[in-house]
Each structure stands twice: as C-alpha cells, then as structure tokens.
Amino acid sequence: MLLIHCPYCDETLPEAEFTYAGQAHIVRARTPSDQTDAEWEEFLFIRENVRGPHFERWRHFHGCGRYFNAVRDTVSDRFLTTYKAGEPRPDLSELEGRA
C-alpha cells in the first residue's frame, strides 16, 4: 500500500483513502462539437503507457474529496510529487532523483 500526499489536506496518507482517476492533463475541449473525429478519439481513448514518470490523477475519496494530479514513477512505484488540479505540469528534470 502506497503513501500519497494530498496537496489539499497537506498530509501523507495511506493509499486506501484514495482512488485512481486515470491519466492527467487530458483537457476536454471548451467546445467539443468543434473537435474533429480524430481529436475526439484522441481525447476519449488515447493514453500513455509510460515506463517512468507518469502524470496521473487521484482523488482523495475518503478524505477531502478533491481530484489532484501526481507524478508517479511506474518503475519504482514511487510518487515524485503531487499537485492541485489546474496547476501546471511540474518540470520532470527537477523531480529526478526523488524516486
């Protein structure tokens, strides 16, 4: 069981309080009807399968209820960082060495 830092509660807590919510930074277009079929397919279905740092979303389900973003190394299964929804992607080079 992993430990996850909730950026809203500012506490590091057991994974059992959280639920996984898929890849992060996939933006739903402001006007979906303007999207081409290819763009909509990309939005709906196309996901990374990263070996290494992966941008992903979690929800502090049994806690503050917030969705937030995380960078987790899929090799070490360690979280490099977590940050609030809406904040920009952190610079990976600055996170290296934290795994």
């Binding site: 309080e17 049994h62 209820g65």
Partner: peptide
C-alpha cells in the same frame, strides 16, 4: 477527519 474505516467513509 474524514477517512475510511473497514471500507466505509
């Protein structure tokens, strides 16, 4: 705190 106890929020 809100947390989880035996599977229940």
């Amino acid at each position: 705190r809100r947390t989880v106890f035996d599977g229940a929020s």
